[in-house]
Write a protein that binds this DNA or RNA. Structure first.
Lengths: 288, 288
DNA sequence: TTCATCTATGTAAATTATTTTCTTATCGAT
DNA sequence: ATCGATAAGAAAATAATTTACATAGATGAA
């Protein structure tokens, strides 16, 4: 179930002039688009109804009414996020925008994520005797730690590093039993690409979560692609973080399922440790 | 404009027998209801099309198609994913589950978030001369760093700590110009509650992102409530992380907007630094 | 009980919306 | 200039939806 608004944005430039007019109206007034009849929408875009039908088909919908439903479904509270420059002032608008962007980002990832790659990476994680999560810069380094945070709970050996030099040095010490997971939102992290190549050269498995075709992605065996349009508004927090979170989530969840038996014991121990230490309420779930 | 599904639930018992049948079908198969024509829906409920039209009117919609749109809009996407036990095996199921939960979690937060609290916290962040982000345990400590990561980019003075002892000691040194932001998913972090009280005692402002009414929430002046049902399945990664991410996002975004002029310069500098260092492509946005 | 009345619902007609088919116009390449 | 491809409208055909009307069944008062 793809996010039609995201699709619309992606395809917009490939549409004909009349169709672009329709697209623009849908963008700028979804409330109208969703409630109007095909005739009303056609009139407002100054095109004929058949053009609207063709427009819907081109976007992968079977009929106009399917199109309307898809537009309505695409959590359009915050779809304004897709437009580069949105004027946002009130706190409620900020909330709606943040939420809309997060939702849409996740939709885009959901639509594009490659289940096979997730599977392959998870398999490799299970095989590795030690895992090294690399990421640099405030965002990606955070995710390197997230990888560590998620995998150690499953009883896996894992460490995270955000230090380029350490990454390079570490890479040189690896072998066939090791695995490197590299995280880079931009995909332009040269040092990381280098570290991945070195690790690969010594026989370690390499996986990345990054932009497809990017420097970093090309340097590793497996890349879980996270390609998202990032606006140019410097004030806009990168919504890609939600997608990265989800990408890590998928891998960790799949790994957890695959090694269910051996994963439960470490989790149980962590939990007991937390509960005993903090308070006696057993309902707490590995909370913080 | 109320959530049509909620309305439906509330009104169901007041409907006639035929209408109840329609209601039940809509409930149990929204996907179908949203895509079917009035004839198909009528056939499935074993009623005539006019009955469906009357049903829609009774629910406050002007037409059947308005009804469909309202159903499509009602955030029903993933509520099933919030239910504790869903059996998942294939990688595609893992992906769908991770995505569904993330979406549902964000929806729940969106519905419940208190815009005034977000506003108040943002205001305080702007006033503070120094900000301390506290969080412990793999998850919350990550978010403490996320707070740092987001705010330093806006030219604010901020540091993060995941160390209980450091938090306690730091708290004792604070004064009126300082602000502590405490993060705790479970809300049961006693040491953090203590640190917040100490900081408060010395006149520092305190805000938390945590479960409402929790130990941690009660220890601070302002709490941005993140209340989510967490299943008991230990293998399930806590989806609360998406909500925390979003909560931080909201605060940071609002702060960014409020101090737009002074925030742009540090961001510009960070960007230039990254671009110059990495490569000449100016389109890169504070990526990693 | 019986009749009046009201509600729920269906049928068929009327209306409206949507799609298909066919045609014309436009644009770019040869 | 001509061909072919694409775009887009007009009109016809089809399908969906609503309206108007009719009827059955229930309810309740005389």
């Amino acid at each position: 179930m793809a996010d039609i608004i995201a699709t619309l944005q992606k395809e917009r430039d490939g549409l004909s002039r009349s169709e672009q007019r329709i697209a623009d109206i849908v963008f700028e007034d979804k409330q109208f688009a969703v409630n109007a009849s095909i005739i009303e929408l056609a009139a407002r875009a100054d095109v004929s109804p058949p053009t609207v039908t063709r427009f819907c088909r081109r976007l992968g919908c079977h009929s106009f009414s399917e199109f309307k439903v898809r537009v309505a479904q695409s959590a359009f509270i915050g779809t304004r996020y897709l437009e580069p420059e949105v004027k946002v002032t009130s706190s409620q608008e900020v909330i709606d925008t943040v939420m809309g962007r997060a939702q849409s980002t996740l939709n885009v990832l959901h639509e594009n994520v490659d289940a096979e790659v997730v599977e392959k990476i998870a398999e490799q994680v299970l095989k590795a005797k030690m895992i090294y999560a690399f990421g640099s810069g405030g965002n990606s380094s955070l995710f390197a730690h997230e990888v560590q945070n998620r995998l150690f709970r499953l009883g896996l050996r894992v460490t995270a590093s955000e230090d380029h030099s350490m990454q390079l040095m570490t890479a040189s010490t690896l072998g066939e039993d090791d695995m490197v997971i590299g995280l880079s939102i931009s995909g332009r992290n040269r040092e990381m690409a280098r570290a991945l190549e070195i690790a690969s050269g010594y026989g370690a498995a390499t996986a990345t979560i990054s932009k497809s075709e990017s420097l970093v992605a090309q340097a590793s065996e497996m890349n879980l692609a996270v390609d998202l349009p990032e606006g140019t508004d410097v004030l806009r927090p990168s919504s890609a973080r939600y997608a990265f979170m989800a990408a890590i989530d998928m891998i960790a969840f799949l790994v957890a399922i695959k090694r269910k038996d051996s994963a439960i014991e470490p989790l149980r121990r962590i939990k007991r440790q937390l509960v005993t230490f903090r308070d006696e309420d057993d309902t707490q779930v590995l909370g913080d």
